[in-house]
Amino acid sequence: MNETSGSVLDILKSMLSSENLSKILSVASIVVLSLVFVAINPRFMVSRNITNILNDMSPLWVMACGVAFVLMLSSIDLSLGSIASCSAVMLTVLFNSIGPGAYIVVIIYGMLAGLINGMLHTYLKIPSFIATLCTQSIWQSVALLISGAKPLPMLPPVWPYIEWVKITFGVVPILFIISFLLMLLYTVIQKKTKVGRTMLALGENESAARLIGLNINQAKITAFFLSGIAASVGGIIFAVKLKSGIPTVGAQYNLMAIASAALGGVALSGGKGDILMTIIGAGLIIIIQNGMNVIAVDGYWQQIVFGALVLIAIYMNADHNRRDLVVK
């Protein structure tokens, strides 16, 4: 017993360090990068830029919170971006016909889209990347069909509905507050409810979670459901921020949201993750993006950098102690 507990302690130590490594690195890189960008361009830390950063960050953060649930199950949601695009377009169109009620309709749409993903995955037993790849294609097509494949501007009559966006509290814009509240809600779901606990358990060990008597299908569907809501809220934020419904606005955010969640410590092998930490990931990504814009680096670098970041973050979160693990 004693000799095993000794080696167990060692394993524990190494686990702990590797577990927190990505988080520590993420926080450190936020600080370092901010300093670098300030050094290159003193305008980086101006309060207007901070407000800009927080504003840019909110849709990404919201989406990252959503997709974090799905990643925790070691599944993936590739439809996030197109649900957001579709939401943005729907909001713009619906403002003209039903006014502020559009907000509710769009969120209901997000719920439905998430539910569909979840049900395809659980009841039809379709692997999540295929199911969401399909719905991604479907919702993208719907967005393009509704908008006629071009950006739809919000016309002056509907501007009163989006007036609230301009409210700020000091340097903190209201959109950021909204994302914060959503994150809070999601954190409560993750930490304080049965469903949240079930998600973590089944990401780690699905057969055990099943035999323990946890409701697996419900947890999976809920994860996709929450991801769908987050995507539609993200879409709404895009639309009101840009005063238009752009049918491809969410596309690039899919990878960025996954990257944010991964940088925040969610492991694809499941069983590990914290909604709260997505703020670090989303912050890092937006600071990189914003910094690149400020120092005028071409846009295509972003795709390269974020792609690489996903790989690095997921590599660091992966549990390399499990030698027998078969990864497909």
Binding site: A201, A208, I212
Partner: peptide, 22 residues
Amino acid sequence: PKERREESIIASASVSENIAMS
């Protein structure tokens, strides 16, 4: 279940979390 490691514990969850699972 028979196979403890594969079928009945969530190894990365704490003792108290595991007890509460069912």
